[in-house]
Nucleic acid binder design. Sequence first.
DNA 1: CTTGACTCTCCAGTTACTGGAGACTTTAAC
DNA 2: GTTAAAGTCTCCAGTAACTGGAGAGTCAAG
Lengths: 133, 133
Amino acid sequence: MKIGDVAKATGLSIKSIRYYHDIGLVQAERGDNGYREYNSSQLEALQFVQHCRELGFSIEECKDLLQLKHDPQRCASDVKRLASEHLKVLEQRMASLADLHAELSELVNQCHGGDSPDCPIIEGLSGKSCCHH
Amino acid sequence: MKIGDVAKATGLSIKSIRYYHDIGLVQAERGDNGYREYNSSQLEALQFVQHCRELGFSIEECKDLLQLKHDPQRCASDVKRLASEHLKVLEQRMASLADLHAELSELVNQCHGGDSPDCPIIEGLSGKSCCHH
DNA sequence: CTTGACTCTCCAGTTACTGGAGACTTTAAC
DNA sequence: GTTAAAGTCTCCAGTAACTGGAGAGTCAAG
């Protein structure tokens, strides 16, 4: 299977697949012409990686998960721990985004939005320090 | 005021301040020794930028906001529009993070976590395609 | 035989910085 | 007066995870 087919099958871009090859995440064999040649297990690995990336795992985490996937000695608790840690990160990001959103939307709500230069948003952003933490 | 003092006053790192100088966001004068010399209006601008960055605005957005801040002809509606657009971005990010979180936590919940290699998380990540979109 | 599609490598750019090297200046202590 | 520490300067490289593009080779169809 050549890289273009793999791209279609996985939904990854050709560039990404080459990148994953370069960093050693999922490496292909080479044909006589130098083209990358992917077999079904490499295809599966790339699909796996793509799902992990979709769920917000970093490349490093994908590497770890891929290793666990291919390790018949793995224990489910290891996988669960990794995933749970990632869940925590997601939760932290969500919380801090929610904070930002609350703060900014308060400023936006205070702003009447007319033609005058008088604007509580600018004033809020100019404020010496922020009271929310 | 020298760069170290500005760093202490604003909470920005020296590196960031120099970076902002380099990209023309907030530029300082130079003393005879070549040191950057910041006056109070530049300090204020940097504080403004720091608040904007804390609220998740990009450098480009900071540039725009800074211009609005220093424009006596500005209208509040322009500021409000910029901020509202940013709010929308924040909302999109929050929504997609929530999606990720839901999907991953479902997988994690399905996993008993014991010593066996049998793991629904790995299986879920290996799955051919994702049903949630 | 040529055209178009596909692949290759290598380089640069993205965002918003951070870290470090090597050199200079200023400040404080002795 | 000297010296050591702290502060500042510039420049280069690296981060994460790619994307875009140049220039060249390869393959299949008409």
